[in-house]
Nucleic acid binder design. Structure first.
Length: 778
DNA sequence: CCATTCGATGTTTTT
DNA sequence: CATCGAATGG
């Protein structure tokens, strides 16, 4: 049964290829073949995993088992090479990737009875790693209590700066200014250096703003994202003993997604590892999609120049996709000039051609894709979580959400509004922020704004008093008497209430954090106010506040000594809280950027219009090669099928625009492409290729289990949408007609499965789950 | 000081 | 079109 699939994992092909590439071949030696950490790897993967001393670069094509190499390597270092776990630093691009890698490493270690060792390995993003080190050693020019400013904080801060400089925020847009400042920081230009190279009148203004912004951050004891990297860099450069300490500790530095590192990240990694240190980087120049954010392709293209002793391994065998998908992706990417030649290969089946569907309008596009998804789920064999819709810009997601919701198809938009950036979450955290950093004026402004009867006037007085006395804003708030005297009775009362709360919070221990949050909510009535509202949006906010309480409880359990500081760091750095856990049985919607590193059975790339996929902007010329790489990333996420859709008329922000299919269409080899009109998008004529190609070659047992799991999941999905397993008593649901309610009871099984729901508007009703079209609310 | 209303304004991608 | 921000009246 598993035979033919399993054969593909280790194909018996001749091994007449040069070392350093991963053409399939027999195991080098019997010893490796017997090691469960190495047995199922190709020679190239094995070489990467077992590389011991000195720098190494792994250029890993999509679906070539890169994550598997990284995790195996960490396990191998610990279990076979005798490296102490805490000497290993693994850096990923996102927190989500870090968490996933940590989990996978742990599983490998647990399998050999070394589960405890997993704790020691530091798996982190550059930003979290830097924040952690800066907390320990103290960043130059700040204290260890510094606050991390996210994009919103930066904007608010910049607005204050603009007001001080008497610049018009409409003319000098904060977003644009911050982009300039960030760009400068990525190029390692501080305000002075920027001013020196400023050309022209506008740059002079930017320079002034930059300088003032830096002063404000220093005054508030705050660091923005870029500063985390720059301060870490400064620490490593200026403090030899810190550098040596860290170098001595982290004997192995592994960096994932190396093609997307920027200059400061590059320097940090290299300073940590030292010239001939054990720097192990994995990346793929063809998947570099963050140039706009300062990523520097030279970091990966010139790795060998920087590290003459470096060994290179290339992983070019793809385990993921059908031949058709791979050929399409290759055909596309070959049009890039700034690129090293490479050829991917696979043993997988040819599969079915890619579909291009030209829709009449964007509405039709959403409808067709949703119909197709509904049909696929009904057909079985493909669980919802294996379907994904990708788009170039977040703005496109809405229509697809609506259509999926209308059909009761469980779906999730990945990373749209990051959890910790939601207003209600930031509101509640503001009190803790003020506690953590008494100079954080941004937090003070929030707290004041949330306290009844207090507003801009009081804030201004406090800030002024703080400035004249040289006190922190928190101290001014708590102790200054002059401010009190300036205020009228209602404000005075409000202010003393606030004082009491803050004093109480200060008297409480910094950990665990949950009681602190509870006290804030209790004393401010924040949560109650949200709960009491009848606006569903407000209720959703209340749910988010409760989710925050959960996150706090989890943090307390995981890291008992962390306390509110740990929560705040998590909040600032962890923007995409993406729990791909048990409730993950849903179709994924995301931007092409967010898709990096993921894989799905079937992928829909929507909005494949010319001015949208090579995205055209008014002001700046677009980087065609980067756009092409973005599409390349999207195509190579798919295991079995890709559908591209474009619309002849697209309504974007009010007005209609006619559109052409993407110019990239012409770059896809026509023999793997099937063009259809809208009538052609019929599932009956387009089954998924069967059997599916092997998922990136898991061991046989896991593979069989995975198949069983996939089938079980597929069976659980009803045309009506909700997964049977999802609904339990107490869950909140929405019905198209009856509105919102709470599940009281679930009974029966199969098609007879019923659910009793108490609806807010019409009372209790019993529904047949299969037909109820219930939408689960979070 | 606060709530509401109106107007203007702008959309890439994210740590 | 939707959200955000400023202006206005209570």
């Amino acid at each position: 049964m598993a035979g033919p699939l399993f054969d593909r994992v280790l194909p018996p092909e001749p091994a007449a290829t040069a070392p350093g590439t991963d053409s399939p071949g027999p195991p080098r030696d019997a010893e490796a073949a017997a090691d469960p950490l190495l047995a199922d790897l190709t020679p190239a993967q094995r070489e990467a995993v077992t590389h011991l001393d000195g720098p190494m670069i792994v250029v890993a094509g999509p679906g070539s088992g890169k994550t598997r190499v990284l995790t195996r390597r960490v396990a191998w270092l610990v279990l076979r090479a005798g490296v102490e776990p805490w000497r290993i630093l693994a850096i990923t691009f996102t927190n989500k990737a870090a968490e996933e890698m940590r989990a996978r490493i742990e599983r490998l270690l647990v399998a050999e009875g070394a589960g405890g060792a997993a704790e020691g390995v530091l798996v982190s993003t550059f930003h979290s790693f830097c924040a952690r080190m800066l907390r320990r050693y103290g960043p130059p020019g700040r204290t260890s209590d510094f606050t991390i400013y996210d994009t919103d904080d930066q904007k608010a801060c910049l607005k204050r700066v603009l007001a001080e400089l008497q610049l018009d925020a409409a003319q000098w847009r904060p977003g644009a200014l911050l982009a300039r400042i960030s760009e400068a920081k990525n190029r390692l230009l501080d305000a002075e250096a920027f001013a020196e190279q400023a050309a022209g009148w506008r740059d002079e203004v930017v320079a002034r703003v930059y300088r003032a912004y830096e002063q404000a951050l220093a005054q508030f004891n705050a660091l923005d994202f870029d500063d985390l990297l720059l301060k870490m860099l400064a620490l490593l450069e200026r403090e030899p003993q810190v550098r040596e300490e860290l170098r001595a500790r982290f004997r192995h530095v592994l960096v994932d997604e190396y093609q997307d590192t920027n200059r400061p990240q590059y320097l940090i990694a290299n300073l940590l590892a030292g010239a001939d240190g054990n720097l192990f980087v994995v990346g793929d120049p063809d998947q570099a999609i963050y140039k706009w954010r300062g990523a520097d392709l030279r970091n990966i293209l010139e790795f060998e120049r920087d590290h003459p002793s470096a060994r290179e391994v290339r992983l070019e065998r793809n385990y993921r996709s059908t031949r058709a998908i791979l050929r399409a992706a290759e055909g596309l990417i070959e049009h890039n000039r700034e690129r090293r030649a490479r050829r991917l290969f696979t043993d997988n089946d040819e599969g079915v051609p890619l579909r291009l569907v030209r829709c009449l309008s964007d509405e039709e596009e959403a409808r067709l894709v949703a119909d197709e998804i509904a049909a696929r789920l009904e057909q079985g064999g493909c669980p919802a979580r294996e379907l994904a819709v990708f788009y170039r810009a977040n703005a496109l997601s809405r229509r697809f959400e609506e259509e999926l919701r209308r059909r009761g198809i469980p779906h999730r938009v990945v990373g749209a509004v990051p959890f910790y950036q939601r207003r209600e979450v930031k509101d509640v955290l503001a009190w803790l922020r003020l506690l953590a950093n008494p100079d954080d004026q941004q937090a003070l402004a929030r707290v004041i704004g949330l306290t009844g009867n207090l507003g801009a006037g009081t804030l201004g007085r406090l800030a002024e008093r703080a400035a004249t006395r040289g006190w922190s804003v928190l101290r001014t708030l708590l102790e200054d008497t002059a401010v009190m005297e300036q205020l009228r009775a209602p404000q005075r009362r409000a202010l003393s209430g606030l004082r009491e709360l803050l004093a109480e919070l200060r008297a409480m221990p910094p950990a665990p954090v949950l009681p602190l949050l509870q006290r804030v909510l209790e004393r401010t009535g924040y949560l109650e106010a949200l709960r009491g509202a009848d606006d569903p949006q407000e209720l959703a906010r209340a749910d988010n506040v409760e989710a925050l309480l959960n996150a706090a409880a989890e943090l307390d359990a995981r890291e008992p000594a962390g306390g509110y500081r740990a929560l705040l760091d998590q909040a600032a750095l962890w923007s995409a809280v993406e729990e791909d856990g048990a409730d993950g049985e849903a179709v994924r919607l995301m931007t092409l950027h967010a898709a990096k590193g993921l894989e799905f059975d079937e992928v829909f790339i929507v909005g494949f219009d010319d001015r949208l996929l090579p995205l055209e902007r008014e002001d700046s010329a677009c980087d065609l090669e980067e756009e092409r790489r973005l599409l390349y990333v999207g195509l190579t996420r798919a295991r079995r099928r890709v559908t591209l859709t474009s619309a002849m008329v697209r309504r974007t922000w009010g007005r209609e625009r006619t559109a052409q299919p993407s110019r990239f269409l012409a770059e896809l080899p026509s023999e793997v492409l099937e063009r259809t009109g809208t009538a052609g998008l019929r599932l009956a004529a387009a089954p998924l290729p069967q059997p599916p190609p092997s998922r990136s070659a898991p061991p046989p047992a896991a593979f069989a289990a995975r198949l069983g799991e996939l089938r079980a999941r597929a069976a659980a999905v009803r045309p009506g949408g909700s997964t049977a397993a999802e609904l339990v008593a107490g869950a909140r649901v929405r019905h198209a007609v009856f509105g919102e309610g709470e599940v009281l009871e679930v009974s029966g099984s199969g098609v007879g499965r019923r659910v009793r729901v108490r609806f807010e508007r019409i009372g209790t009703k019993t529904l047949v789950l299969q037909y109820a079209n219930l939408e689960r609310l979070t």
